[in-house]
């Protein structure tokens, strides 16, 4: 049973989530909903919950600032947002989850399924601090022209494994290789790691320019079908 809180400044967003959650998921128990972020903060400081659906753009305080104000907590966070490309990138970089509004029932189900699978509590604190770092970086950009999106928002990206999350500097990565629902990441130190995210996820996060500058002979990369590689030369 997940004791759940929904926070969104627009009441209709709360209602949609309530309807969808109550319809399908017996183990999601909604204990409170807030359209006022200050009241939500107060509640979360004094109550233990398991899951929080959190809107990002709200008057007074964004969802991300709300998390920043909580000293410690152990709940899972799913961000809900209508549109915010920087926030979404920050969320992806920190390996937290998000859903887009209007909410697709199937995607919500995937989120809940994922939540049920997470048996061990992943280090929330480092995830959140990465998120805050990414988000404050992205907030410095006032212009919303897509061309102004920096290729790398910050130093580290979060890579999810089955039981843990490790933060890597893109410069430690030589290339990424698709392997069904997993991605093989070749590190500079020769180590290969298998991340439990698809290649698409990393393609959204990284550009070849972020990676360690290593020239890879084409012969050794012929089985890398769709991958992020800095440079390839034929030998």
């Amino acid at each position: 049973m997940f004791n759940t809180v929904i926070i969104d400044d627009e009441q209709h967003c709360i209602e949609v989530l309530e309807i969808l959650l109550q319809k399908k998921f017996d183990d999601i128990h909604i204990v409170a909903t807030f359209s006022n972020s200050k009241q939500a903060l107060d509640f979360l400081q004094n109550n233990q919950v398991d899951l929080v659906f959190l809107d990002i753009q709200m008057p007074f305080m964004t969802g991300i600032e709300l998390l920043e104000k909580l000293n410690k907590y152990s709940f899972h966070v799913v961000f809900t947002t209508a549109y915010d490309q920087y926030a979404i990138k920050a969320i992806k970089l920190s390996a937290l989850d998000y859903i887009l509004k209007p909410i697709d029932e199937e995607l919500l189900e995937a989120t809940i399924t994922k939540l049920r699978k997470v048996s061990s509590v992943i280090d929330m604190k480092s995830q959140i601090s990465t998120l805050l770092q990414q988000y404050s970086n992205s907030n410095l950009l006032e212009n919303i022209e897509p061309t102004n999106v920096p290729t790398s928002l910050s130093n580290k990206i979060a890579v999810s494994f089955q039981d843990k999350i490790i933060f890597y500097d893109p410069q430690e990565i030589v290339y990424c290789q698709s392997n069904d629902n997993y991605t093989i990441i070749q590190l500079k130190n020769g180590e290969k790691v298998i991340a439990s995210k698809t290649m698409k996820h990393f393609e959204d996060l990284l550009t070849p320019n972020d990676l360690y500058d290593l020239i890879i002979p084409t012969s050794s990369t012929q089985n890398i079908s769709s991958s992020i590689v800095k440079k390839m030369v034929g030998i």
């Binding site: 949609v16 209508a82 549109y83 509004k101």
Partner: peptide
């Protein structure tokens, strides 16, 4: 775009 998508969500709420 925030306005567009939230408006659609709001309409979805009436449907649900």
């Amino acid at each position: 775009p925030h306005f567009l998508f939230n408006s659609l969500n709001s309409i979805n709420n009436f449907i649900l």
